[in-house]
Amino acid sequence: MGRIGARYVVNRMLAALPVLAGVVVLTFVLVRLLPADPAAFFASGPAMGPEEIEALRRQLGLDRTIPEQLAIYVRGLLAGELGRSLVTGQPVAADLAARLPASLELTVAAFALAVAVAVPLGVLAAARPGSLLDHLVRLIAAAGVAMPPFVTGLVLIHLFYVLAGWAPDPTSRSDPYLPSSPPVTGFLTIDTALDGNWGQFRAVCGRLVLPAGTMALFALAPLVRMTRAAMLDVLTADFVRTARALGLSRARILLVYALRNALVPVVTTAGMVLSYMLGANVLVEKVFAWPGIGSYALDALVASDYAPVQGFVLTVAAIFVALNLGVDLLCAAADPRVGLE
């Protein structure tokens, strides 16, 4: 794509820096507004008195003013350090790096599943408005909006694990009784496949189905609605009438003429849904005991462990920014009229 210059990409990334800076400051301040005292929380041994707690507070730097603490944190950020987790005792960057693949694998699987179901459904519903399928699609869209993902997750666990017994227990990403494969990408599906470890591969896929399905149900509604609406809009366009008047096949009209022209709003929505899924991960990961960054951040939040929460928000914000750029690049690729300047 000659139109999409490297300069554009660089400019966009530079423009994202103020956003990320704002995110850093905002989360830093918000976390400290929480009505909890990390020093008291971690000094919960029986031998700990007020003096010990005060000493711990000094040691953690919590006795300084918030601007001072922020300055220290930002200095660390600039050196590439996200701080240390009080719960795990590890650097937050290392914790996040270790857990990010689990979150990404879950999100990507859920997103792929949602797109694979939503786009064909939306196209078919738009092709026959008012049909049974169209009504079904609208029902799915309404239900998806009405059900929060952690509720869907619990319902699915109850149905498929507790009652039917088809799903593996929702406590891990892989089968602990099968040999594991050496980590290459951190995506267990890919790592086990690379290793030819097909037994574990099946176990990993099986454990991915319910959480990914939960998140996919959540993502399905906006995607299917936008696909249907964009398709309905394009199908009334003059050039679709032209295509019919010239005897093009129905499949070609639907897929090449209508769907490709409906792609820009669908891709934009997909980008929003994907970024939103990264945030919504938090509760789904908790429900399925998924060792990702969402459950990590939630545990840290409950423990008043500031650094991991800040690191999580910053990571998700960076992914947001990258996704938005990716969406704009994809839209430009889908529509030659879209200029990138």
Binding site: A237, D238, F239, R241, T242, A243, A245, V256, Y257, R260, N261, A334, D335, P336, R337
Partner: peptide, 12 residues
Amino acid sequence: FQSPRAALNPIR
């Protein structure tokens, strides 16, 4: 048709 520009697929 009239409005020939709209009658053609804009992105093909």
